[in-house]
Design a protein around this nucleic acid. Structure first.
Lengths: 133, 133
DNA sequence: AGACAATCCGGGTATATACACGCATCAAGA
DNA sequence: TCTTGATGCGTGTATATACCCGGATTGTCT
């Protein structure tokens, strides 16, 4: 029985499911929710080093580095160097800004759908609960 | 702003965090929460084919196949064949039963910790909300 | 200036996950 | 029985994620 009540497993299932909602909405743009979200974070901190970005998104630096490399190959960001030659500085590329603009309403749509299905009350509850974990 | 309220991103963060709780607790046994949970599911359906198991845990069949191969290498399960030669039938190996026994109290510990921190009320709420997504 | 520690990154390794493709096997109908 | 279509798997490919190690750069103290 324990598997049906494991907080971790239930969280994973929910995450996969919800991720697919966002992924499907963003599919026309050729990016998934992880990439889109990372792009948004980069825009907010631009220009930003891998270490700072990793700290912000609470992911391992090497993970962010590899994810960033995908965005670079898609020509959505540029990876350059700052004054400190050790740092890889990330900046949004023109195509990236385009994706950010076009993706915003798509993202809003999914977000609204979820809140409509749960109701604002429960949506808030969920976010609060997730933050408490 | 939007990144801080994205249901998907918040779910991912929470999932990573909570996964690490379980992973740390199970670390002495050399398995993570995903492997432990899969093992429990296999035990419950034993002997079970990859397709049936995948359907049960709501993961892609190829994913379950690869995860199972790891469990096989750890000698926690055995992968044989049923009457239908196409099917890969999974059964728990002795070492797997050992892990299941020793892991149960460790899993309980984390589960209890989480419920204690949230309170039974909120813990239930969380599970309900996750199911509604 | 030189030595040493701290910091930043890339790459290796491993697991988790999904999708698409092709091969083997089985089942059903001609 | 033979052909076909359905079913079950394994593998290739790609992304996501973490941990560890080693190399390069920077900062600091003597």
């Amino acid at each position: 029985m324990s598997n049906d009540t494991c907080h971790c497993i239930l969280l994973r299932k929910a995450t996969r499911k919800v991720s697919s909602y966002y992924d499907e909405a963003l599919a026309p743009l050729g990016v998934n929710i992880g990439q889109f979200s990372l792009l948004r974070n980069i825009r907010r901190m631009e220009p930003v080093s891998l270490t700072d970005l990793a700290h912000k998104v609470e992911l391992d630096r090497s993970t962010v580095g590899r994810n960033a490399k995908v965005l670079e190959r898609l020509e959505l960001i540029a990876i350059g160097h700052g004054e400190d030659q050790r740092e890889a500085m990330l900046t949004i590329a023109p195509k990236g800004r385009d994706i950010l603009e076009k993706g915003a309403p798509l993202w809003d749509g999914v977000q609204d759908d979820i809140e409509a299905r749960l109701g604002h009350e429960k949506a808030r509850q969920l976010q609060d609960l997730l933050a408490e974990l």
